[in-house]
Nucleic acid binder design. Sequence first.
DNA 1: GATGGGGCTTCCCATTGTGGGAAGGTCAAG
DNA 2: CTTGACCTTCCCACAATGGGAAGCCCCATC
Lengths: 129, 129
Amino acid sequence: MNIGEAARGSGLSAKMIRHYEAEGLVAPRRLENGYRDYAATDLAVLRFIRHARALAFPLEDVRKLLALWHDRGRASADVRRIALDHVAALEAKAEAMQAMAHSLRHLAQHCNGDARPDCPILDELEKLP
Amino acid sequence: MNIGEAARGSGLSAKMIRHYEAEGLVAPRRLENGYRDYAATDLAVLRFIRHARALAFPLEDVRKLLALWHDRGRASADVRRIALDHVAALEAKAEAMQAMAHSLRHLAQHCNGDARPDCPILDELEKLP
DNA sequence: GATGGGGCTTCCCATTGTGGGAAGGTCAAG
DNA sequence: CTTGACCTTCCCACAATGGGAAGCCCCATC
């Protein structure tokens, strides 16, 4: 299976697949002409990567999860800890963004939003501590 | 006022102040020795930038907001539009992250997290569509 | 007047994950 | 044999920030 097929089969772009290989996450064999050749297990790895990235796991976490995935005897506690740490990071960022959205929406509510120049949004951005 | 004082006075790092200058957001005059010299109005601009960045406005938005801020006759609707678009972007990202956190927390709940290798987190990452 | 320390300057590099694009090799169909 | 669709590697870009080197400047202290 060449990289184009692997891309279509995994849902990743060929560009990204090469990148993940450079990062050491996948290692397809090479044909005599230099083309990458993906086995079914490689495809499974690529799909795993796509799912983990869809959950916004940073590549470093994906690397650890792949190592645990390959390790038949790993402790599920190891996986769980990575996942829960990631959940905490996601929730912290999400809350920070919602707090920003909230205060900005509050400012915008007091801006009449017409042709007049008076705008408490700019006033606050100017005067905040 | 040199860049160190401007940094302390604005709450930005000197590094970032130079970066914002390279981006065209602030233009301090130069002394004969080449040092940047910040006027009180420059400091106000820097503080404005810091507040806008604290609300996660991308630099492009900060640029537009600064232009509107400098424009005494601008329409408040223009500012409001930028702010509300940004609120929508923030909320969309926050919701996406919370959705990811939610499904991952759900997976983790079904992982016993002990020394045994059985872990539905990895199983799902492997098998998802 | 020399020396030392701290501040300033510019320039380059790294980060994270993704994409664009050039230059060149390969293969299959016409 | 040409054409087009692949593939290869390598370099560059993004946004926003930080690290660090090399070199100049200023001021205080000896």
